[in-house]
Design a binder for these strands. Structure first.
Length: 624
DNA sequence: GTAGGGTTAG
């Protein structure tokens, strides 16, 4: 598909014009540039003795610093050995290796003949030092000169696109490699997979990945990471197994990536299996692997296991501490998160912006208002970390949840950094909790000004209208959302039973044991109502009568997953479920009752945090 | 004469 599209561009335009985030140029693409190169490394050097060539190359290799390279450069110039391409190339390479791009460019400009290697060295040199403008400039010169693009120079520019996350430019280079017949080269494909993955177009990365005739460990790792990142962590783990089945043994980097995928997935059994596998490899728990495992266990619902890893790590950096603080935060254990902070300082680690986001978040989700305010004011005064919009969002969340909506609004109005939709979203969420319709409408207006693309915000506002019984306004909001091409993200809940993951949607009847699940829900409903549970229909958005509303509530995906868990999980085994959106108010109450009546621990991971239900109480203390 | 892939929040 892509291939034919690219050819289309070439045939119709001959010249390729493009502009992207980083560059705006016109390429004159020499379509016949894959002719064999006319010059060879040794062709022009008949007057330079062979031993001179060898001598210069070896003295260049033994140079320890730039000064020495320049000295050898002078000797080469006196000898006239520049006309030997191999010597000139080696010198070029040495300059680039030492980051002396000005010297390299001067040398390059003075070269009468250039080998394709010379081009790849200079283009790659600029990419290495982060001078992408010059990198692409020289790349354009390469194409103009008619030198062939090869398996050496193409990956260099593709990697530059990856570093810039410049998809448009990446696609263009991809087109050129196709035109030059390089699309089956291993290095080209491997870098293309990496580029597409980094630009978050995992489908394109995958397309190239499948056509590669051999895939090495790094390319597998890129693919595994990209799948996890793009919201399909199940696929990511399937790829990991497939890789191992092909006899490729994962190294530490691959394991860190899989651990990351497990964290995304939030599946405890998988996490334990990966942990056992890592133990089997004998790899030590270094700072990166250890930190990834803390995150994995915490996001799979066990903050205790995360702490167990944390306590056994020999070296911890600011990321490790921040991960552990964040873990306590989203598990609602704010006090423990706060205890870690002085310990971190004592161990000589200074906090960064993320540490403060984690701390403020922990305060917000545990209702620790004064502590949060103290951290917020000390972050700049004592630690020199400037509050950004994320920190303000945490503060708005903190004040908003506590019902101090006026203060939250005041903070937003007075803040010196640019406001984003997440910030307004936090205030809107608070308006919903405290049923503050007037403010919600004002906030919504500010959000609409920012042309919010998040369906969640529209859903939240229509929820607020629905709660207030303002059905017309609710319909208008919904309308606005659909006109903007936004669709409500369907709620999904996952539950892991043994090796398998089961997914439920609202009103899902696709599960083979669906009948039993609904029977179980009915029985539960009856028991719960006797115990005093009344379905809270506030979260049901439709203007329908109470009975129907209750029916809608009973088919929420999290309830289906819990009913299934009760059916299949052994006594004493906690029910762990993961939801892609926030758990609704009624399901929250439902979980509390089930945990009491059925004597089950229920651990719910929603889009924001964890809720541990035990004996009728939730760890979020209904702070939600 | 070819790298490249990895950890925290949102």
């Amino acid at each position: 598909m892509l291939k034919s599209k690219c050819h289309h561009i070439f045939i119709n335009y001959g010249k390729l014009r493009f502009s992207s985030a980083s560059l705006s140029w016109q390429f004159d693409v020499n379509c016949n540039s894959n002719e064999p190169t006319p010059c060879s490394q040794e062709s022009e050097c008949s007057h330079v003795l062979h031993y001179d060539t060898k001598r210069f190359r070896s003295s260049l290799l033994s140079c320890r610093n730039l000064f020495q390279v320049r000295q050898v450069h002078a000797q080469i110039a006196t000898n006239g050995a520049f006309r030997n391409l191999a010597v000139a190339n080696k010198l070029l390479y040495m300059y680039v290796e030492r980051g002396a791009l000005e010297d390299a460019q001067e040398l390059f400009d003075g070269m009468s003949k250039r080998h394709p290697y010379s081009w790849s060295v200079i283009v790659g040199g600029y990419a290495k030092v982060g001078n992408f403008f010059s990198c692409f400039w020289m790349f354009r010169e390469l194409l103009r000169s008619g030198a062939p693009l090869d398996d050496y120079s193409a990956p260099v520019v593709i990697r530059a696109c990856r570093d810039l996350k410049d998809l448009k430019c990446g696609r263009l280079i991809h087109c050129i490699t196709l035109k030059c017949g390089l699309d089956y080269g291993h290095f080209v494909c491997a870098t293309l997979v990496d580029m597409y993955a980094r630009c978050k177009v995992v489908e394109d990365a995958h397309q190239i990945f499948v056509k590669m005739w051999k895939r090495d460990l790094a390319t597998w790792t890129v693919m595994i990471g990209a799948l996890a990142e793009s919201g399909v962590p199940v696929e990511s783990l399937v790829f990991f197994d497939r890789m191992r089945n092909q006899g490729i043994v994962p190294d530490k980097v691959a394991l860190v990536t899989v651990v990351y995928a497990c964290a995304k997935l939030g599946a405890m059994n998988k996490a334990k299996a990966i942990h056992a596998y890592i133990n089997g490899t004998g790899y030590s728990l270094d700072v990166i692997l250890g930190t990834a495992m803390i995150d994995m266990y915490a996001k799979c619902g066990s903050v205790e296991s995360a702490r167990w890893i944390f306590d056994r790590m020999q070296v911890r950096n600011v990321i490790t501490w921040s991960a552990m603080i964040a873990a306590y935060g989203y598990h609602g254990q704010g006090e423990k998160a706060l205890e870690l902070f002085p310990m971190m300082l004592r161990s000589g680690i200074l906090p960064n912006r993320i540490t403060f986001v984690s701390l403020l978040y922990a305060c917000s989700h545990a209702g620790l208002i004064e502590e949060g305010q103290r951290f917020f004011s000390s972050m700049w005064d004592e630690y020199g970390v400037t509050p950004d919009v994320k920190h303000y969002t945490c503060m708005v969340d903190l004040l908003g949840r506590a019902g101090r909506l006026d203060e939250a609004l005041e903070m937003i109005e007075g803040m010196p950094v640019e406001k984003d939709e997440v910030l307004w979203g936090a205030l809107l969420g608070a308006c919903r909790i405290h049923r503050h319709l007037d403010l919600a409408e004002r906030v919504a207006r500010s959000l609409l000004k920012l042309q919010s693309q998040k369906p969640g915000h529209y859903v939240l506002l229509s929820n607020i209208y629905a709660n207030a019984g303002k059905w017309e306004d609710m319909a208008k909001t919904r309308d606005l959302m659909t006109k903007g091409g936004l669709r409500k993200i369907p709620g999904r809940t996952w539950i892991e039973v043994g090796e398998k993951l089961y997914q439920f949607g609202v009103g899902d009847k696709t599960h083979p044991r669906s009948n039993e699940i609904y029977k179980m829900l009915k029985r539960l409903g009856e028991k719960l109502e006797v115990a005093g549970y009344h379905p809270d229909t506030n979260d049901v958005l439709y203007d329908v009568d109470e009975e129907v509303k209750q029916g809608l509530l009973y088919s929420h995906s999290e309830k289906l997953a819990i009913a299934f868990g009760l059916l299949v999980l052994p006594q004493g085994h906690p029910i762990r479920i993961t939801k892609n959106l926030r758990v609704c108010g009624d399901c929250h109450t439902f979980c509390k009752f089930v945990s009491l009546i059925e004597q089950k621990t229920i651990i719910v991971r929603d889009a924001k945090r964890f809720h541990h239900f035990k004996e009728g109480v939730c760890s979020c203390r209904d702070y939600w």
